[in-house]
């Protein structure tokens, strides 16, 4: 009899464990502010030479020494411009570990100088979009309200309503933009990396791109209502309603129903 009574006292243990876990996960909701944009610098001839050396050592195994690419392995980089290099290498997507449609973000492998050298060399192969200037990506100069309109028409379907990310087909996904720098956001729109379509300046003008950056930057203020639960919509709200809200209340019913000692 005592054995049964004793066991009954530990019934709440799994519930407490779940709550503790959830409390840990709450950290996910915290939103980090994007760091400020860096200015692009004029590429010198030296940079081009240094970039070519870096390319041969780190990128040529897939893209080829002349950056013409290989069918089914890696695309040609002629004409993709400095912006694409800065985005792909600067976010750690390149060099890739394995060829595939999704380039996962990894720790950045090169210094900003090296990235600019690589970009300078690739840009020298053929004209393409350049790295944006600091003014072009300054959120303070953008209109977040217009950015909201542009973002939700062109971006939210994949990246979520405030850029929390979302799933694509066959395991691909649109990454969260909440920690992406304004420059990289700009470059991604301009160059259309991986699955993402290209949003050239005729589609989303440079001003509109800056508005989008201002809209995303505004999200670093957090949500007026409190923690945002990952900003992924009603599914996480429902999960919290069950686990936290109903969980806490049911825990209290167990206290209410238990006999006082």
């Amino acid at each position: 009899m005592h054995a049964i009574a004793r066991r009954r006292h530990h019934r709440a243990a799994p519930l407490l464990l779940v709550l503790a876990l959830l409390a840990l996960i709450t950290g996910i909701a915290a939103v980090a502010a994007p760091s400020t944009a860096q200015a692009s610098t004029e590429a010198s001839a030296d940079d081009v030479v240094a970039g070519e050396r870096l390319f041969a050592a780190n990128c040529a195994s897939c893209h080829g020494l002349d950056a013409q690419g290989q069918d089914g392995v890696a695309p040609s980089l002629v004409g993709i411009g400095a912006a694409a290099v800065d985005f792909q290498v600067g976010t750690g997507r390149m060099p890739m570990q394995a060829s595939g449609p999704q380039a996962p973000v990894k720790p950045v492998q090169f210094s900003q100088d090296q990235i600019e050298q690589l970009a300078a060399w690739v840009a020298s192969l053929g004209a393409g979009p350049a790295i944006p200037t600091a003014d072009e990506v300054d959120p303070a100069l953008g209109d977040p309200a217009n950015g909201m309109l542009v973002f939700r028409t062109n971006c939210a379907m994949c990246h979520g309503s405030i850029g929390g990310g979302g799933a694509l087909t066959q395991g691909k996904f649109a990454p969260s933009l909440l920690e992406t720098t304004p420059t990289h956001i700009y470059e991604a729109m301009l160059t259309g990396p991986q699955s993402m379509p290209v949003f050239n300046d005729a589609n989303i003008t440079p001003e509109m791109k800056r508005d989008v950056i201002a809209y995303l930057d505004f999200q670093s203020n957090g949500s007026p209502g409190g923690l945002s639960l990952g900003a992924i919509g009603p599914v996480s709200e429902g999960l919290w309603a069950w686990l936290v809200l109903l969980g806490l209340i049911i825990a209290s019913t167990i206290w209410v129903g238990a006999r006082s000692s």
């Binding site: 909201m148 309109l149 939700r152 028409t153 939210a156 379907m157 994949c158 990246h159 979520g160 309503s161 405030i162 929390g164 990310g165 979302g166 799933a167 649109a174 949500s223 007026p224 209502g225 409190g226 923690l227 945002s228 639960l229 900003a231 992924i232 919509g233 009603p234 709200e237 919290w240 936290v244």
Partner: peptide, 19 residues
């Protein structure tokens, strides 16, 4: 905890949709 942040979704328009 925020719930239903409609200011993120914006006013209704038949064209946009979000993940």
């Amino acid at each position: 905890f925020t719930i239903n942040p409609v200011w993120n979704y914006g006013p209704y328009d038949p064209s946009p949709v979000s993940a």
